[in-house]
Design a protein around this nucleic acid. Sequence first.
DNA 1: ACTTTACGTAAAGTATACTTTACATCATAA
DNA 2: TTATGATGTAAAGTATACTTTACGTAAAGT
Lengths: 79, 79
Amino acid sequence: MNSVIVNKLRDLREAKRNESNNPELWTQEGLATRLGVTRQTIISMEKGTYNPTLSLAFKLANLFGVRIEDIFEYRDEKK
Amino acid sequence: MNSVIVNKLRDLREAKRNESNNPELWTQEGLATRLGVTRQTIISMEKGTYNPTLSLAFKLANLFGVRIEDIFEYRDEKK
DNA sequence: ACTTTACGTAAAGTATACTTTACATCATAA
DNA sequence: TTATGATGTAAAGTATACTTTACGTAAAGT
């Protein structure tokens, strides 16, 4: 709780959605299904600072074809 | 649950513990303290497949001076 | 013997990631 | 007007990461 994870999920997803010729793959629902999570989980993540499990982070990075650090940024709130 | 995270924590920690001139920094307890978790968490991780939060994975990578993928491996058990 | 250090185990509790269900809004199109 | 697709919100439930406490063992030093 003295550290925060921020992410660029929303922007990355919309970019994919615009580029893709299968845009429905990149809706919240499409993403969720392919990740094996629910749409609520996507919504929570896109909403702001959210600390997912490592396995979900890996799955996302794989789907987007980038590294974890390209989606998530770790911010240290050191005292 | 159709995917698994394996890690090399134990080996990496012991290596650090042997190299270091401050070995107590690399005991389970030393590691735990610096990560802001308990020794039980370290034990659970070293014990086998464990799916930590992304923030903990980032902290570990920073402490060990490596990338997340150098500690954790994502294995897809796809159907 | 005894103390200390590092590691192991077990069991119950807390926090939070993630689910489930249900209903609402808004744009677009028939 | 009615339908459909995509997003938003809210509330209660489940799974599991992580904590807390406590006790056990075994090695190494005194």
